[in-house]
């Protein structure tokens, strides 16, 4: 467990670009990301390192990135939020129900109303998690495991298992449009990342979150109002999940109760890869940015290799799952070695 003094020196130091880069884990991570990127470029000559592929990746990874930011916040406080996917789908549905109302006619208020509904729904879900964890003292894993089932279940009941699809074109642009060639979802993700970065590095709330995760006993005795802190954390986690949900439904033009269940593992993987301490107290936005890029390059690269045999077998979605698992264990082993030395 990190000591108080570590945190203080981290906070005293001004985060200049060089000091950010020179932290060991980030340098290692940069190497991993670059290696994966180059490796995939070499394995897919003329296809991976193209503008087309890079922009297509830019449309794909923002959802995962936002989920990873949410998971990181919960991990920093020493907990975990397993319900993010459920929250995202529920929030997406809240928006979808309003969006399909417009039904072809122009409806200027529909889109803002839908976005508000999604964000409101996600914050409500987050507050429920926060109450269970902060006020009722339920272990985060258990509380969010239960709410994950509950939120997904409610989404199933609302939709009877069917997709709610077909939104106005203006809304679809949110997930498919681009500004000066930069995908809009990427901009949304970068916006979220910037906000979380400012929160963690520049506000007292961020400092308190890290203190709580580093040493909860010390946090209690330094007079932090833990319940309110946890309530806010999980509300924020929920809000981020809601943003991810909006990106998902506008990109796919459909909201489903059970979309993206594999995102949970991937988001945890990104957070661990990013160097977030699963025991709480530490995590950086820079890490998340690099880790999500590494994972997306791996994923896109493997997708391109799908139609040619590699080492005697064809690559499929399960090869990806296998690779992610190996990567997760490998990175944890490397981090462990780095901590030991």
């Amino acid at each position: 467990m990190r000591q108080m003094s570590d945190i203080q020196t981290d906070c005293d130091r001004r985060p200049t670009a060089w000091s950010v880069l020179s932290r060991h884990h980030l340098v290692r991570l940069l190497l991993v990301t670059t290696t994966v990127f180059i490796l995939m470029g070499v394995l897919n000559p003329g296809r991976f390192l193209t503008w087309r592929n890079v922009t297509s990746m830019g449309f794909q990874f923002p959802e995962l990135g936002v989920f990873a930011l949410a998971i990181m916040l919960s991990l920093i406080t020493g907990g975990i939020d397993l319900s993010v996917i459920g929250v995202a789908n529920l929030a997406g549905l809240a928006a979808a129900f309003i969006l399909v109302r417009s039904d072809g006619q122009p409806c200027p208020w529909c889109i803002p109303a839908a976005i508000c509904a999604a964000l409101l729904a996600s914050v409500t879900c987050g507050l429920i998690n926060g109450v269970l964890i902060g006020y009722l003292h339920i272990t985060p894993i258990l509380a969010t495991l239960g709410t994950m089932q509950l939120f997904t279940g409610i989404a199933f009941v609302l939709t009877k298992g069917q997709a709610v699809a077909g939104y106005p074109e203006t809304f679809q642009r949110l997930g498919n449009g681009a500004v000066f060639g930069v995908p809009l979802p990427l901009l949304i993700f970068l916006g979220c990342a910037a906000i979380v970065q400012v929160l963690l590095a520049r506000t007292s709330l961020g400092l308190r979150l890290q203190l709580l995760g580093t040493n909860p006993v010390a946090a209690v005795y330094s007079g932090l109002r833990i319940r309110r802190l946890l309530l806010r954390t999980y509300a924020l986690t929920g809000l981020l999940a809601g943003v991810a949900g909006l990106i998902v439904i506008s990109r796919t033009n459909a909201a489903k109760a059970d979309y993206g269940s594999s995102y949970l593992l991937q988001a945890v993987l990104v957070a661990i890869l990013a160097g977030v301490d699963p025991k709480g107290g530490f995590g950086t936005v820079w890490g998340i940015l690099l880790a999500v890029l590494a994972l997306q390059s791996l994923s896109s690269g493997l997708n391109m290799l799908r139609f040619q045999p590699v080492i005697g077998t064809y690559i499929n979605n399960f090869t990806k799952e296998f690779t992610w698992g190996v990567l997760l264990l490998l990175v944890m082993a490397l981090n462990r070695r780095a901590r030991a030395t």
Partner: peptide, 20 residues
């Protein structure tokens, strides 16, 4: 490390290996 995260990784290794 927390057993939750280790077994999350190993679960996808087992399942991925099986299906791939």
């Amino acid at each position: 490390l927390p057993t939750l995260i280790v077994t999350l990784g190993s679960a996808s290794v087992f399942r991925g290996f099986l299906l791939a």
